[in-house]
Design a protein around this nucleic acid. Structure first.
Lengths: 225, 225
DNA sequence: TTGAATTATAAAGATTTCATAAAGATATCT
DNA sequence: AGATATCTTTATGAAATCTTTATAATTCAA
């Protein structure tokens, strides 16, 4: 298996360094964020396998970050805190924190809790969720959300959107898209694409006349971002 | 829902009493064992929803009990210990403990950790009773209720509904549903599904013409929500 | 800027998929 | 066996989706 990836959200550089050294020497890949905002962005753009979240962050309190994360992130979140504050512990656990450690923590215990949390989360089946900005696609349930609202897509629309998101940033040619969705013999039916891209835009774009997600690459194809 | 049942395995009577009072006043049903052996027997004869296990037991060490329990018991086990011993914590978590608390513990934190552990375990594991909005399904007695009224379902209807509720939110394809309910060779008999979905809707939906639970995903299958 | 090529959108027409009733077949129970 | 419940099949109209056509808008290059 690949290295498990852990995102540290903590404003104290020395703590991040300490965690980084310990985690990397235990074969985890480490990503760091020094503010809650940065952590949210990093976790959304590339969801880690576990998040270590400091509760005492400067920009937003860790509790708010926790709540925002839990709206879509369902892997383990372990809370770190300097205060040994019971009500903090209680509210964090009630808000979906997986575990809680107070600083100064012993690294052995931290590593054990991380192992335990990752093991448990792997037991619960792996939900493949693709997130591109405000668009969430759950590939197991075939559910698409935009800003947490469920969007009803037809089968073809869904297939097209899934194909786009799997190739985020790439220009996909008309030929390729037609071949993948409709099949080999439809490679010249460019008008199909135009119609379906149109309906998709109406459903997922804020302003379909000025699309931010499905970009036209004239003469070539489309690009999803 | 029924009260969650918690088994305490601890040799100290005063600790058991303290836990019992706290847990019962928070609406848990409490079962007690004063030795590891007794705990193993009790948990096997009537599996609780969560186990609080003291690590320092006289007959067998808590670690051994933990290992024996984990051979078959997959609900949460929270470890209690007087020693704040790091290697104990590490080995307990590695042996499948859900969580770990050192005595003396604060009851608020304990209760929060219990809630958190039970909530997490309910997300994953197959509950005996599935609740989806106004629909209750008791998987052991095959009884289905809607707004507390018993609904009479045929065997096939029940199987279909149970399959739906076990996969709440997911789109289940025609193929999959047919294979699961009727068998491998029925994967093309889509009309069966339509008929049975129709009768199910009549029985469980408020307004069968505008179904809120069994949603059709045209061209793909159905989704239960 | 102009005109051809490309793209977008609306909407009509065609097709597929779905829901429902009901008849016929099979199984179950007394 | 006879009655009852359940399952399977068939038929039909409704709904959703897909395809096609027509036309407007946009893009791009000379």
């Amino acid at each position: 298996m690949n290295k498990a990836e852990i995102l540290i959200i903590d404003d104290e550089p020395q703590i991040r360094k300490l965690l980084q050294i310990n985690l990397e020497s235990n074969d985890y890949k480490v990503v760091q964020a020094s503010t809650g905002k940065e952590g949210l962005i990093l976790s959304a753009s590339h969801p880690p396998d576990l998040i270590l979240l400091d509760i005492g962050l400067p920009d937003k309190s860790g509790h708010e970050i926790l709540q925002e994360l839990r709206e879509w992130y369902n892997k383990p979140i372990i809370i770190l805190s300097v205060q040994d504050n019971e009500s903090d512990i209680v509210s964090a656990l009630d808000n979906g924190a997986t575990d809680y450690l107070t600083k100064p923590f012993r690294t052995g215990e931290l590593l054990a809790r991380i192992r335990s949390a990752i093991r448990r989360s792997q037991n619960t089946e792996n939900k493949a969720i693709i997130i591109c900005g405000d668009i969430h696609i759950d590939l197991t349930s075939r559910m698409v959300k935009r800003n947490n609202e469920v969007i009803k897509l037809t089968s073809t629309e869904y297939n097209l959107l899934a194909l786009f998101t799997k190739n985020e940033g790439k220009v996909l040619t008309h030929q390729y898209l037609l071949k993948e969705i409709w099949g080999y013999s439809y490679q010249t039916e460019t008008q199909y694409l135009r119609v379906f891209v149109g309906t998709l835009r109406k459903k997922i774009e804020e302003n379909p006349n000025n699309p931010q997600h499905i970009i036209t690459e004239s003469g070539v194809g489309y690009r999803f971002q």
